[in-house]
Write a protein that binds this DNA or RNA. Structure first.
Lengths: 190, 190
DNA sequence: ACTGTAACAGTCTAAATAGACTAAACGCGC
DNA sequence: GCGCGTTTAGTCTATTTAGACTGTTACAGT
């Protein structure tokens, strides 16, 4: 029972992967997991199979054939169609042109930062900043090693973007912590 | 048929709102819409009623009473319980401490930026940057007027955060556009 | 050679969500 | 004082999704 609307972020990821090479869902997932944690985190298997089936019905991919290794379940290999290629470009263009208001968990939490009290807020924010820094360092290393392995910059551009945002967030958190400490950001006495 | 897991961002928003005052779901939604577009965009009515029912079963809120204005449908007013207050702090703390890898639509699109070609990429990115700037300007204005109306900084802190990230994104896009133009970012010839 | 664990590939189902639907009451124009 | 669009408030259902389940094969240790 595949879906109708097909406006979810997985669609773009699937089309993008298939642009590079024909593949079966399980392999796509493995590929996504390997490339980027953020991609993979947002996808579960059930959803992926369902989405691929729907994309197939939409005519953006076609079954290229069945494969079988030993007596494992058969793998259905999909390839991008011309319509799929067009759709990919259309979506890409649209999603880049139109910024959406994203609602992240952190944004939701920051809204009620007050409820932690000044000390609790400083403590929690400090830990986040520290974790962010660790993660950023690890990501920078991965990026550097990808580069020195000869990966064209275009292929790692999304890592650059993610890093840029992470750095901005870290800097912001630092400044808030500072403002709480110096009294530039105070708790209203209610 | 309320849910079990209750790990979705609406929960925090509901608890946060009820910390300020008891309320009924419809009012919460109106409040959220008014305060912030990003909050509201992520919530539909069905989901909200469902979530509030589940939160109620979890014991984090309690029915305070029924209200009725004229012959309109009865409104069920919920108030935060002590357990709810604790849960709010727990979630707040957790969601601030642990940064998650967020997977935004733009991040997904940037990954396949290559498929647009250099010219297409520059065009799309340019439009995004322009829209971001417009939005940022509008948000800055709202923030300024809230401040001059005497709102404590703590109450508008999430707007500051959103602005900070939006600026960082804009700057990054500008730099990428520049790099494409100057040839610092080239398309591999495949 | 034999057992346990991890990887492979996919299906299935219960829970969660988006968005249509209901239905009364307000208010604005004329 | 009469239609007509909006706002108020909530319910209901058809999609969607997360995550458990199935069964197979590779592989490591003993």
């Amino acid at each position: 029972m595949p879906r109708r609307t097909l406006d979810n972020p997985i669609v773009l990821a699937v089309l993008g992967l298939l642009l590079e090479q024909a593949s079966h869902p399980y392999q796509m997932l493995a590929e996504l997991r390997q490339r980027s944690d953020s991609h993979a985190a947002a996808i579960t298997r059930g959803t992926l199979y369902n989405t691929v089936a729907a994309i197939n019905e939409a005519g953006w991919v076609a079954v290229q054939g069945q494969q079988r290794a030993g007596n494992r379940p058969e793998r259905t290999v999909y390839a991008l169609t011309d319509a799929g290629r067009e759709e990919l470009v259309r979506r890409l263009d649209d999603q880049i042109r139109n910024p959406e208001r994203e609602f992240t968990r952190f944004l939701g939490a920051v809204t009620y930062l007050g409820a932690l009290g000044p000390d609790g807020a400083v403590e929690a924010l400090t830990e986040r900043a520290q974790r962010l820094r660790q993660r950023t360092a690890a990501d920078e290393e991965r990026l550097a090693s990808a580069r020195s392995a000869g990966a064209p910059r275009l292929y790692v551009i999304e890592a650059e973007y993610a890093l840029c945002l992470a750095r901005a967030e870290t800097a912001w958190i630092d400044s808030v912590i500072d403002d709480i400490r110096t009294g530039a950001l105070t708790w209203p006495t209610t």
